[in-house]
Design a binder for these strands. Structure first.
Length: 262
DNA sequence: AGGTATGTTAATTG
DNA sequence: GCAATTAACATACC
């Protein structure tokens, strides 16, 4: 779930409700999810502070307090934030509860692969994590430069968070399918037309997914996201889809629409 | 019971 | 140094 579109939707929901709220207390019930600090230190860092804004970079959601102290949330495979009204009980698998003067921000994460961190500022956090520019709103020229500087295949390139932040397994497949580019094609050496196509599809896929509230059921029928299972056929040409293993992840593609060369 | 899962990171190999 | 692969992390779901 939580690739850029999901995290963008989380961010918008939180941005509507959190600014101006102040932290009464904080509870972390899965200390292993904390990055380099104890639950006590985490609580001390944010208690008493008021939320200025909620923003996002790549798959990371940043709750920025006054003076720029930042609570950074990464959702791993199964994390999700929720704002509870006063008196609402915490849902199952709640790992973090930020009690506010009105309401409460919780993070649920059954698999506990998410991360919780505190930083001096958003910039300090991004820097410490070596994140590349956000995938959304990247210019075609900048994308072209990043492609040329890479020696990876296209799918690995798109998923490398230090190059480009926000794209994961599902959306890298979607973007390459829409752009008709093979996931193992080298990132460098694409034609100008192919770079333009990749840029347009990257932008459009992410924007469409966000507009759909990151809910696959509301995404266009031509999206590959509906067909990531054995036996499915390409929504464009009707041919059999193929599953490759790239790293330890599954890449879905249409071998007819996404030839190795060309 | 066993296989699968959308993320990140460290260790290993080429 | 870079890129690709594998295992590990912890748990739910089918």
């Amino acid at each position: 779930m939580p690739e850029l579109p999901e995290v963008e939707c989380f961010t918008r929901r939180l941005q509507e409700r959190l600014p101006g709220r102040c932290v009464r207390s904080l509870r972390v019930t899965a200390p292993a999810m904390l990055e380099g600090l104890t639950p006590g230190a985490c609580a001390r860092a944010v208690t008493g502070r008021c939320v200025k804004r909620v923003t996002r970079h790549g798959k990371h959601l940043l709750v920025v307090f006054e003076q720029d102290t930042t609570l950074a949330l990464h959702f791993g495979l199964s994390g999700e934030p929720r704002v509870l009204a006063d008196g609402e009980t915490a849902p199952p698998h709640t790992r973090l509860a930020l009690v506010l003067d009105r309401g409460c921000l919780v993070v649920t994460d059954p698999r506990k692969l998410g991360r919780i961190a505190v930083a001096e500022s958003p910039a300090a956090y991004l820097d410490a994590h070596g994140l590349g520019p956000d995938a959304l709103g990247l210019s075609a020229v900048r994308l072209g430069a990043l492609l040329e500087a890479s020696r990876s295949g296209l799918k690995s390139f798109l998923m490398n968070q230090s190059v480009l932040a926000g794209i994961g397994n599902v959306y890298s497949d979607e973007i390459l399918f829409q752009a008709r580019l093979h996931p193992r094609r080298p990132a460098a050496g694409l034609s100008a037309g192919a770079v333009r196509r990749l840029h347009r599809c990257l932008d459009r896929v992410l924007a469409t997914a966000i507009a759909a509230g990151a809910d696959p059921d509301r995404m266009p029928g031509r999206f590959l996201i509906h067909y990531r299972h054995p036996g499915a056929r390409c929504p464009r040409c009707g041919g059999a889809l193929q599953r490759l293993t790239v790293g330890s992840r599954h890449a879905w593609l249409c071998p007819r629409c996404q030839p190795q060369a060309g």
